[in-house]
Design a protein around this nucleic acid. Structure first.
Lengths: 141, 141
DNA sequence: TTCCTACTTTGTATTAATTACAAACTAATT
DNA sequence: AATTAGTTTGTAATTAATACAAAGTAGGAA
């Protein structure tokens, strides 16, 4: 689902999860910035508004929210984790040229494999290549 | 492709890649152990036969071989990279209960998404859940 | 409103995978 | 056998992420 901030806040309230200023800010940032930010990006952006903010809090909050399935972790980069407020199953495409990460729909049924007796709980799909913008740049040179 | 050690060695020779004892041992280990080992597992296994072996060499070799597309890196675990001598596009299923990683075929065409103008070079598919062995254990308790 | 307490935040220290680097070594050719 | 470009090795550095304990606070109780 692509939930609004209000919907997310209501889910937290329903689950009796303490609604701290920091958690609200992180959720707000993620719902407003769908560009799959890293911990460091979130930290640097929020540090201005919340000067006391600690990176550990960002880690705590993001880990907690992803346990609660309110956000999604993306590890398409080997090094740094990225985060996505959109928790529906969808693919991520990483452009090897500009580094941008694009969402894409997985409209086919991925479950028809040789995994008959497996209980599938998560489907993670990452594609890598070159995005249209970078392709057109290359072609115009 | 699921290549034999000989085939891999021939590919290295063809590409004029220096055939060191260490590289051969790493390739040999990967072709004999299809259980997606980590750097540390490879290191500990080969250290006995090649006492001088350094972990940096393992990293160097694995990075080099994956650049050459002779092996595949699996980052289904956030922490540690795993390696696979099978370079054909296939999925990896991780059992959340026992940690085992299973290969599975991707027999459907994954390219029919909203990625019309993208140049797709790599398709990475990770599923997570519970494997049949663990499921039957749970059911028998 | 004030108090209380369990939960949260924060900063620092630590962990652990990976990379950087330079000196010693070696595969493959001359 | 000599040469050399490329490789291995060990140590040090990097860096994302976690552990931990002290200080702070949300939210309910009195």
């Amino acid at each position: 689902m692509n939930k609004s901030l209000d919907e997310l806040v209501n889910e937290l309230k329903k689950k009796n999860i303490r609604l701290t200023h920091q958690r609200l800010k992180v959720l707000e940032y993620l719902t407003n910035n769908k560009n799959h930010p890293t911990v460091d990006q979130i930290y640097r952006a929020l540090k201005e508004e919340v000067p006391s903010l600690s990176k550990t809090t960002i880690y705590n909050t993001l880990n907690y929210l992803s346990e609660l399935k309110l956000i999604q972790v993306i590890t398409i980069e080997d090094k740094e984790a990225r985060f996505d407020a959109d928790t529906k199953t969808h693919g991520h495409f990483k452009c090897k040229s500009c580094g941008e990460i694009y969402d894409f729909d997985i409209d086919i049924d991925l479950s028809t494999n040789n995994l008959e007796n497996f209980k599938i709980e998560e489907k993670i799909v990452y594609f890598k290549g070159v995005c249209p913008r970078c392709l057109s740049k290359i072609n115009n040179n």
